[in-house]
C-alpha cells in the first residue's frame, strides 16, 4: 500500500532530481525508499571547500509529520555535529515542519557547515575553537576535508 510517507518521498525524489540544489546529491537505496544516502559538497571559498560529506537520512512512516533521522557518515568537526554524526539543528528537532522536503533539509545542513550556531554546542572542542581560535578551527576543518577524500575510496 502506498502510504503518505512513500508518496511524499517519491515527490521529494522527483524534486531533487529535477531541481537539484547546488552542491547536494541524494537518492534512496535501491531496496528501500525509506533510507537515503546523500552527499553534501563543502561550499566554495570556505574552509569546507572540496570536502565530500556523506550522510544518511532515515525516514519513518510518520514522514513528513515527523523529521527524518539525519546523520553524517563522514567524520566531522563542527560545533553542532556530534561525534557519532548526529546533527543539532532546530528544523530537525523542535522547529520541524513538514514543509521541509529532502532538498530543504540538505540545504539547511549545508548552510549549517559554514554558519554554526554557538548556542547549541554538540562538539565542545569545535565550539570552543570556533569562538576562540578561528585559525586552529579552520585548520581542523581542513583536516576533515582531506579525511573525507580518504573515506571516499
Amino acid at each position: 500500500m502506498s502510504t503518505s510517507a512513500r508518496r511524499r518521498l517519491l515527490r521529494d525524489f522527483r524534486r531533487l532530481q529535477n531541481d537539484p540544489p547546488s552542491g547536494i546529491t541524494g537518492a534512496p537505496l535501491d531496496t528501500n525508499i525509506m533510507l537515503w544516502q546523500a552527499v553534501i559538497f563543502g561550499p566554495d571559498e570556505t574552509a569546507w571547500e572540496g570536502g565530500t560529506f556523506k550522510l544518511t537520512l532515515e525516514f519513518s512512516e510518520d514522514y513528513p509529520n515527523k523529521a527524518p533521522s539525519v546523520r553524517f557518515m563522514t567524520k566531522m568537526f563542527h560545533p553542532n555535529i556530534y561525534n557519532d554524526g548526529q546533527i543539532c539543528l532546530d528544523i530537525l528537532q523542535n522547529q520541524w515542519s513538514p514543509i521541509y522536503d529532502i532538498s530543504a533539509i540538505l540545504t539547511s545542513v549545508q548552510s549549517l557547515l559554514c554558519d554554526p550556531n554557538p548556542a547549541s554546542p554538540a562538539n565542545s572542542e569545535a565550539s570552543r575553537l570556533y569562538s576562540e581560535n578561528r585559525r586552529e578551527y579552520n585548520r581542523r576543518v581542513r583536516e576533515i576535508v582531506e579525511q573525507s577524500w580518504v573515506d571516499e575510496s
Partner: peptide, 15 residues
C-alpha cells in the same frame, strides 16, 4: 489512522 490522510491534513491546517 496513524498513516492515513488525516495526519498530513492536520498539518495542512497550519499553512
Amino acid at each position: 489512522d496513524p498513516h492515513g490522510p488525516s495526519q498530513m491534513s492536520t498539518w495542512y491546517c497550519r499553512p
